[in-house]
Design a protein around this nucleic acid. Structure first.
Lengths: 354, 354
DNA sequence: CTGAAAGCGCTAACAG
DNA sequence: CTGTTAGCGCTTTCAG
């Protein structure tokens, strides 16, 4: 037999009236549910007059269809999971303004195309758990914000045919679809600008175990080589993106080393932390140390000093990620996409030599 | 008869293998689907050995249950809609760091309690459209970020018995449940501090048509009265939260009026814009004009100068909003909640008189 | 043009 | 302890 336990929503005991369903408006309209269904879906098979009457009744009663049932029957789903990794050990969450902006951009792109967005976080060490949303049928695919340190897990997910798009850099032997800014170019633009300012001892702040950072470092190294300089490993600081963890690391670095005159930071938040640390060590920005950030977050122009930074294409990002995912669902095999970036000049590393 | 059109996800043409279902693992385990269902739900009714075997099989096959079907059958749903209003006319979106932080906080609170979060935006003029998520059964309730200018619509939604919680201030004749910071106190703390600094001409920047701002202005006015001062309407600037719109308004104000020596801003982003505008008008912060922001966004400490600001309880906000919603679903009638705020002293309005 | 009936994947009485 | 069976609310053949 059958009989669901509670006619209301989840928990229980709510005094809400039973949710209206097709059978109700069918009864009121004096037709069958099939007719209501057809009418509400604008089928040509139903008399225009009846269709109108049913539609009006439904509207006046504030009826809306039960999507759970509809999706089950149609085997379709218009929900996309957007997953933001977080560092479970440091318990630092979704907080970097850049990632948040990307989420906003995706939300817009999905809404525009009539899709819903399920937002969640996942332990950055277990990116593969994001496949749950697809496996359980809650979402038709997954957009993951960042590759973090688990390129391997992402490849496995793609091999399992999970519809997946990842914001991040394109890596060798990559099976999954990624969309990201041009990280190599970003690194190059940042370093080259500092070199043009006459700086020669350029530090690099960012955890190169992350693919995006790794690529940026390639670009940075390439710019140094172009200028006839070698990369000095002592000037590389593997600071993570999480401010809580990065703060101490950056401070120690700035206190212990005073032999650099410029810094490339892999996010604007890291840039801000670095500026504070430098000041704490009695050094000024941009005079003693010129500094380039990364992301061009909305507030970058309002910091102290305003940040020269690599602008990431946030607005385009959402649309590109969503299109790549829908492409996969259409059976296409969209390759990785690299979007253009450019250097936004402000005071932390001004146009004219300081 | 019946026959769904496409065994894959939404669009079509995907070469993905058919999603595993209970009947498959039932067949492989040599039991009925009921047994599988019971086993997977840890029912005591099924032999421990069988239960284990089924569970293992399911895990090894990477099976996960179809939640759409389960929810339909159980008439339950563990999804909450979180809706961020946006200004459709200026096309400014989800971007204020404070609102984004609140969303993150809600995401955490929902995840902790085993709920999913559907994130979407809605035209700030049609907050009532947010009820769609509930009406369609996609979510069991709605959390709305901000009241904006439509207290009335919110009251109607609550009257319609929509499970709804709104981040914002408590207003007279309010039928819906709100959770928010203590706006009156925030306004008072900000103004009182500036008065203690010896400032007497204190401007107020924020659109008082928004309930939260209206309450902050009450607090501000009260602090002035305590000090024996009158509110000067000429020093009130109705700047909206959207930076794109606010920038020009604030600049005009700072250019045309030079008869104030302090400002209370209703968000940290507005504070930043105001600082820029003041500098553009040749005035310094905090010397010529002391300034207090609102929200204490994560980056407030890194601005130029670091912002003295009213700290909002973001971390608690998520949990409070979610608990209030779940309370409603349990049939309770949770009243509005006002959370404590405090003034965070930094350089834009320092502790000692400038 | 409209209604009856089957079934999407799952759960829960109800009988073994 | 386990299988059979009847739906959750909807769409869609198939027959009128």
């Amino acid at each position: 037999m059958s009989k669901p336990k509670d006619p209301s929503g989840a928990p229980a005991g709510n005094a809400e009236q039973r949710r209206l369903q097709m059978v109700d408006i069918a009864r009121l309209a004096g037709v069958s549910v099939s007719t209501v269904s057809r009418a509400l879906n604008g089928s040509e098979l139903v008399n225009a007059e009846t269709r109108q009457r049913v539609a009006e009744l439904a509207r006046s009663l504030n009826y809306s269809i039960n999507f759970g049932a509809r999706n089950l029957r149609l085997q379709e789903n218009k929900t996309v999971a957007v997953v933001v990794p977080y560092d479970a050990r440091s318990r630092q969450h979704i907080s970097d303004p850049f990632f948040l902006s990307i989420v906003g951009s995706i939300a817009d792109a999905l809404t525009d195309r009539g899709y819903d967005m399920l937002l969640s976080r996942v332990d950055a060490e277990r990116l593969d758990l994001a496949s749950h949303w697809f496996d359980s049928g809650k979402a038709i695919g997954v957009i993951l914000i960042g590759q973090w340190r688990h390129h391997d897990q992402l490849n496995e997910m793609a091999a399992r045919k999970l519809p997946l798009v990842v914001w991040g850099g394109e890596m060798p032997q990559q099976l999954y679809c990624s969309v990201g800014g041009d990280n190599v170019l970003g690194g190059t633009l940042a370093a080259r600008h500092l070199l043009q300012l006459g700086r020669r001892r350029i530090a690099f702040v960012g955890d190169a175990r992350l693919p995006e950072v790794w690529l940026r470092r390639q670009g940075y190294a390439q710019a140094l080589r172009e200028a006839g300089l070698d990369v000095d490993p002592a000037l590389e600081l593997a600071a993570p993106f999480e401010p809580g963890v990065a703060t101490g690391v950056v401070r120690d670095f700035c206190v212990s080393r005073r032999d650099f005159d410029a810094v490339v930071c892999c996010s604007d938040v890291l840039a801000l932390l670095t500026i504070q640390a430098l000041r704490g060590a009695g050094r000024s920005v941009p005079d003693d140390v010129a500094l380039v950030g990364y992301d061009d977050m909305p507030l970058a122009a309002y910091c102290d000093p305003p940040l020269t930074t690599v602008h990431q294409p946030v607005a385009e990002a959402g649309a590109e990620l969503v299109e790549a995912l829908l492409g996969q669902l259409r059976g296409e095999r969209p390759g990785p996409r690299t979007l253009p970036v450019y250097l936004k000049l402000r005071e932390s590393a001004p146009a004219a030599a300081a």
